[in-house]
Design a protein around this nucleic acid. Structure first.
Length: 436
RNA sequence: GUGGGUGUAGCUCAACCGGUAGAGCGCUUGAUUGUGGUUCAAGUGGUUGGGGGUUCAAGUCCCCUCACCCACCCCA
C-alpha cells in the first residue's frame, strides 16, 4: 500500500558532494594548518547539549534562543538542543574539563562542524550549516584580540582572498552598554512612530540591536544618534585603542563600523565581522568578538575570552568563485584515481583485484572495473568517466605472455610491460607527471 | 513568522487563446570478434510535485497541499 515516495533531505539541509566536498575539505585543511601555527588545538564537542547551556550562554533575549533552536526532549524528559553556535559549548567544555588547570593558559582551541538553526532557508543560510571557529580563553588584553585577528586574516589569505571588508567596533563593557542603551532610548523615543515594529520592540528589550537595522528611514534617524564608541568607559576605550593601533601597525585594512553590534548577548568590547559583496543578502562570512562575561555567566570564574566563527558554507561559496579555484582544488584532491585496471573476461576478475592491489601497494590510487561482461568499449568509457589517465588491461593474451597492457589515455598510446613488478614500472611512468 | 517566484524525462528546458507531452544533453547498444573522449544509427526514457474542482477535454483555469528558490527578518 505504501505509495512510492521519494525521500529527500530535510528542508534547509543539503548533501555536499563534488566540488563542494572538495572545497569543504580544502578549507578545513587550511584551518588546521594555520591555526596550529598559532598554537591552537582542535576540539570536538557534542552536537547536542543541554538546552539551558544556550539559554544562559547565548542569551534569552537573542533571536537564536527565542525562535531558532532545534529543541526536543529525550526519553527521560531532559530538554536538549542541537547546537546553534559554537562558543557556549566550548565554554562549557572549558569548565567541565577544567582546562585552566589541565593545560597552558590562555586556552587556545579551534573547532569545526555542523550547527543548526531553524530559520527560513535562503542563499547562504541553511538549517544545517557549518562553522569553523576559534576561541582564546583566559587573556583579557588587547594583544590577544590583535593576534586572533591576524591569524584569521592569515587563514583567509591562504585560501586566496585578497580584499575582504573587515568591520570593527567595540560594544564596551556591560556598564557602558547599559549607559548607552539608555541614551539611545532617549534619543529615539521622540521618533518612536517612525520606527518599524521590530525596532519599536527593541526600544524596550535591546536598543543596541536597532543600530544594525537595514530600514532606510531608521538608518537616516540613526545618523544623528549618539555613538556607542563615545560612551565607552576608560578601560574599554583604551583596550579598543590598542587594538586599532596594533592592527594598523600590522597593515590590517579595517573599518570602524559604529553600527556593528552582534546578535549574541555575550559579546563585550571588541567585535568584528568580515563581509563580502559577492555573497548576496547573507553577506557576513564570519563574525566574532570578545566575551568577557560568558564563562562567569555559565557558573565559572570570571575569565575573559575572545573568538570568532566562520560561516563555512558561505566561505566555500566564495572560495569556488576565486579564479582558478577548481584547478587548485583538483591539485589537492587526494581522491584522484589515475589508474583503472580492466580485467578482460569473467575468469580474470580476480586478477584485476590483485593487479589493483599491487598498484595501491606502490602508492598509486587505482580502481578496478570488474563488470567484465560488458563490452570493453563501455568499460573504457567508464575508466574515462572516472577521470583515469591510465588503463591496465589484463586478459588471456596477457596471461600467456606474462605481460600487462598499459594504455595512456592522454595520447592514445599503449605498451606492454612485464607482469612481474609492473606496479613499479607504472609508478615510474606516473610519478614524474604527478609532481606539480 | 511575512512576502514574491518556481515545480514537465536523470539534468537544462519547450508545448499558441484549454485539445490529451517534445527537444537537447545524459544513459544503453551497435558501426565484424579485446580498445575510451569525435562522428553516425537505433534504443531507454514522464501518473506534467501531490490531492480535489470546473470542462466533452486540464501541463495549461480555480482551490488546497507539499517541495525548492529568492527576499524581509536574523545571523555564520
Amino acid at each position: 500500500m505504501a505509495a512510492k515516495r521519494r525521500f529527500q533531505t530535510v528542508k534547509g539541509m543539503h548533501d555536499l558532494g563534488g566540488w563542494m566536498s572538495l572545497a569543504f575539505a580544502f578549507v578545513e585543511g587550511k584551518a588546521r594548518e594555520v591555526f596550529s601555527l598559532y598554537g591552537y588545538d582542535e576540539v570536538r564537542t557534542p552536537i547536542v547539549e543541554e538546552t539551558e547551556l544556550f539559554v544562559r550562554g547565548v542569551g534569552e533575549g537573542s533571536e537564536i534562543v527565542g525562535k531558532q533552536m532545534y529543541t526536543f526532549d529525550d526519553k527521560k524528559g531532559r530538554s536538549l538542543t542541537l547546537r546553534p553556535e559554537g562558543t557556549a559549548p566550548i565554554a562549557r567544555a572549558y569548565l567541565q574539563n577544567d582546562w585552566p588547570s589541565s593545560g597552558p593558559q590562555p586556552v587556545k582551541v579551534f573547532y569545526m562542524g555542523p550547527y543548526f538553526r531553524y530559520e527560513r532557508p535562503q542563499e547562504g543560510r541553511y538549517r544545517q550549516f557549518h562553522q569553523i571557529g576559534a576561541e582564546l580563553i583566559g587573556d583579557p588584553g588587547p594583544y590577544s584580540d590583535v593576534e586572533l585577528l591576524v591569524m584569521l586574516l592569515r587563514f583567509l589569505e591562504e585560501l586566496g582572498f585578497e580584499d575582504l571588508e573587515v568591520g570593527l567596533n567595540s560594544v564596551g563593557d556591560p556598564e557602558c552598554r547599559r549607559r548607552y542603551s539608555q541614551r539611545l532610548r532617549e534619543f529615539l523615543e521622540p521618533y518612536r512612530d517612525e520606527l518599524g515594529a521590530d525596532s519599536r520592540r527593541r526600544l524596550e528589550t535591546n536598543p543596541l540591536r536597532i543600530l544594525d537595522t537595514k530600514a532606510p528611514r531608521e538608518r537616516e534617524l540613526l545618523e544623528g544618534a549618539p555613538r556607542l564608541r563615545d560612551e565607552l568607559g576608560d578601560p574599554a576605550r583604551d583596550h579598543f585603542q590598542v587594538v586599532c593601533d596594533e592592527l594598523d601597525r600590522f597593515g590590517v585594512d579595517f573599518e570602524i563600523d559604529d553600527g556593528l553590534v552582534r546578535g549574541l548577548d555575550y559579546y563585550t568590547r571588541t567585535v568584528f565581522e568580515i563581509t563580502s559583496t559577492a555573497l548576496g543578502a547573507q553577506n557576513a562570512i564570519l563574525g566574532g568578538g570578545r566575551y568577557d562575561g560568558l564563562i562567569a555567566e555559565l557558573g565559572g570564574p570570571s575569565v575573559p575570552g575572545i573568538g570568532f566563527a566562520i560561516g563555512q558554507d558561505r566561505l566555500v561559496d566564495l572560495v569556488l568563485k576565486i579564479p582558478g579555484a577548481r584547478k587548485r582544488l583538483n591539485a589537492e584532491d587526494h581522491r584522484r584515481r589515475p589508474v583503472c585496471v580492466i580485467p578482460i573476461g569473467g575468469s580474470y576478475r580476480r586478477h584485476g583485484l590483485v593487479l589493483a592491489q599491487e598498484l595501491r601497494a606502490a602508492g598509486i590510487p587505482a580502481i578496478c572495473e570488474f563488470d567484465s561482461l560488458r563490452p570493453l568499449k563501455a568499460r573504457l568509457k567508464q575508466a574515462a568517466r572516472y577521470d583515469c589517465r591510465w588503463v591496465v588491461l589484463f586478459g588471456e593474451d596477457e596471461e600467456k605472455s606474462g605481460e600487462v597492457v598499459l594504455r595512456d589515455f592522454s595520447d592514445r598510446t599503449q605498451e606492454t610491460i612485464p607482469r612481474d613488478g609492473f606496479a613499479a614500472a607504472v609508478a615510474a611512468k606516473i610519478r614524474p607527471d604527478e609532481q606539480p
